[in-house]
Design a protein around this nucleic acid. Structure first.
Lengths: 112, 112
DNA sequence: ATTTTGTGATCTATTTATAGATCATAATGG
DNA sequence: CCATTATGATCTATAAATAGATCACAAAAT
């Protein structure tokens, strides 16, 4: 919530960010990688790695995901190939849904 | 990779961001919520919602997670209570690990 | 077909995140 | 213990993200 965090984050999204940070830190330490090393490998500054591991909601999602990938945290319970497949599958799903939201007749039945 | 994206994002993290965006858009449309409505409820601008749904890696992770929460996208396959429990459990886990990374003798065996 | 409305894209002002230092502290290995 | 080094915190300059418009277009309902 960028602009002068007037509205607070929900408990859910805050916890999600914190959990991701914990998983990254855990993965990093278990692999015996220093924060500076992770930062370098991810192309980030060490300070940013610190904030990511702390669960700071203001961090760029790409930076956090990159760090996660390096220390072996699996996003969406999927490896690289599975993730790619999910993206493709969802593309197809989205093509079937109405493109603008209002009352419509398509009742999406499947989910995966 | 904020500062002058000198290093590219990995395929994995880019896909993860795109997938999250897709899931959010899908959840939003299935719930017949407009982008403007989602933006308002999440405390974001409509433009930011657009970027999040597109999978822009530069978006704040808190903003993306907030939008996800509102349209019912489950992060880490967990509902609010489960997420909170995971955070607590991980806190305990992290307490057992060495606090700085170098050669150590603790061989982390469990994962969950 | 018409009208309404959601969406996508673009622009600017402003806030904010980030890189890159530095310093103090704590934890690790010897 | 001692030496080393990883971490945490803080500061500044700069780049980037965000809010808030506006506009054209597409899509949906009547």
């Amino acid at each position: 919530m960028p602009r002068s965090a007037v509205r607070p984050y929900s408990h859910y999204s805050r916890d999600a960010a914190v959990l991701l940070g914990q998983l990254i830190r855990r993965g990093r330490i278990e692999r015996k990688i220093t924060a500076a090393e992770l930062a370098q490998r991810a192309g980030l500054s060490r300070g940013l790695v610190q904030r990511i591991e702390k669960g700071d909601p203001g961090c760029a999602i790409g930076a956090a995901f990159e760090a996660a990938a390096i220390v072996g945290v699996r996003l969406f319970d999927a490896d690289q190939a599975a993730l790619s497949d999910l993206v493709t599958a969802n593309q197809a799903m989205l093509a079937l849904l109405p493109q603008a939201a209002r009352a419509s007749r398509i009742e999406a039945k499947d989910d995966f």
